[in-house]
Each structure stands twice: as structure tokens, then as C-alpha cells.
Design a protein around this nucleic acid. Structure first.
Lengths: 130, 130
DNA sequence: ATAGAGTGACTACTGCTGTAGACAAATTGC
DNA sequence: GCAATTTGTCTACAGCAGTAGTCACTCTAT
């Protein structure tokens, strides 16, 4: 995720990126009508953000025929994982422990996720034993 | 964390806040000498950021006698958990699933971290059993 | 042919973040 | 007493994020 390492996304840009990632492919009009309207943003505000995201490399635009269609430059999961990696590195100093502590204390981890984490830890234990 | 809901912190501000949170109480001179120098920042840059963080309510300053000492307005864990909560809400739409997926895929957990994670999961298990 | 609708580019503004010099006042060392 | 050092405030700039109006062009409906 080279581009993201060079630029930062603002709050609103992030949410627009997620919107497009969830709904791709999206026309500007779609984004204006749904994303923009739900946030009370002017048409040109949404257009500007789409263009900035495209210029930053987070969105791609297919515009052989109007209306142009936008989609994320990376698969949805990559977009999200890049953001998480970024957050963990910049805010938590690289350690995921405080994040898990938060999830445990806020009781937002469900049994399935806890199970996945246990499986991961077991696998790491096996690898360390090798 | 009412203040943080009103303002956002930039990257550098965040790291300075973490530095002060880790080392409290900290004089401006400490911050300039350690934080600033490690990042190649001018003295007045660090001073400005300290003052902005104080004005935003993230730092408190005891200045009955020079040199003033800075400390976080909230306990370290609260600062961190507030940021995580913020991130989960804004970037992950409230769901911990993408973070768990990130942990599973990143394979970057250190042994010490794995141990701490195990303890957290054990705690979760105990709570679920109650 | 023309009005209306849709589209995308251009432009511009505010406040914030990151950055840092200049300055005055207080303190310290000689 | 004075120079040097330390401290904190004031000020200012560039670039970015968020915001949005205007305009020209294309397409559509009449």
C-alpha cells in the first residue's frame, strides 16, 4: 500500500473510500445521492473528494463512457487491513495488545473471533516450538 | 473522552501525546530534547504542539514553578482506549472482525505479545463462564 | 432548435496540522 | 552587575482536508 504510506486520508475521505469500496462500482451521482446526502454534503464536495481519492491512488475511475464509475484501487480487505496496520503502527507503537485489550474490555469480541484468536496463538506456539 | 470527540489529533500530535503519556511528568525541555530531537524537530515546533495539546485538553500543565511539567489529562489506558474506540467506530464501522482478520493474516505477533493475548482471552473465557 | 438535466473541471475559502523564528522575562553562573 | 541560558509566548507560513459555487460541455426531451 505504497500510496497510503505517502498520503494520509482525512475522516471524510476515509468514509467515502469505504462507501465506494462497499458499493463498487459507483458513479459520482451515486456517491452524491447516497453518501453525500446522508452527510448533508454539497454535490461538488463529494466530487472533489472523489477526485482527490483518485489522485491519491485510492480510487480508480473507468471513464470511457460517461458517467464515470469509481472503484477502489485495492480489494476491500486490503484497504481495511492497510488502515489497521497503519493505525496499529502509528497509534499503538506496533503492538496489537492494547487493541485486543480494548475489544475484550468493551465486550465486542464474540465467541467466533475469540476462537480465531486462540487458533492463531496455538499456531504461533507450534511454530515457535519448531 | 469528550474533548477528543471534538478535535482530531494529527500524527505528530498523537506521538507527542503518547510520549508524554509514557513519561509523565515531562518538562518542555525533556520533550524537546528527547521527542523533538529524535524526530529532528525544532524547539518551537515541540513547544507549539505541547501548547496545542494542552489547549485541546489532552495535556495538563503544572506551572506553579518553572519549568512547567506536562502530563496527560487522562490515564494512559484511557488515552489509548479512546483512540482505539475512535478508530474502530470510524474506520471499521464498529466491527472487530476486520481487526481479528488482520491479526490472523499479519503473522507479526511477538512471543511476549502472544502471551499477553492469551491472558486476555483467558480472562474473556472466565467472564463468559460466569 | 432549445431548454433542462447531467457531468466533470476549475477555482476558492476556512481551519487545522506541522513547522519554526523572534522576542521578552526569569534564572543561573561567574 | 552582567552575560549566558532557559523558559514560555507570539507570530507566521505552507500544505492539506473539508467545503462548495461556477462554468462549460454533453445528452435528452420537446
Amino acid at each position: 500500500m505504497g500510496k497510503e504510506e505517502k498520503t494520509r486520508l482525512g475522516e471524510q475521505e476515509l468514509e467515502l473510500l469505504r462507501f465506494v469500496t462497499d458499493r463498487a462500482p459507483v458513479t459520482a451521482r451515486d456517491a452524491v445521492a447516497e453518501f453525500g446526502q446522508s452527510k448533508g454534503l454539497a454535490r461538488t464536495t463529494v466530487l472533489t473528494m472523489l477526485e482527490r481519492l483518485r489522485k491519491k491512488g485510492f480510487l480508480l475511475r473507468e471513464d470511457e463512457n460517461p458517467p464515470a464509475k469509481y472503484r477502489p484501487a485495492q480489494a476491500k480487505s486490503e484497504v481495511i487491513q492497510g488502515m489497521i496496520a497503519d493505525f496499529v503502527e502509528r497509534t499503538l507503537g506496533g503492538s496489537p495488545v492494547p487493541f485486543v485489550a480494548y475489544l475484550v474490555q468493551s465486550k465486542s469480541i464474540k465467541a467466533e473471533e475469540a476462537e480465531q484468536l486462540r487458533a492463531l496463538l496455538n499456531e504461533l506456539e507450534r511454530e515457535d516450538a519448531d
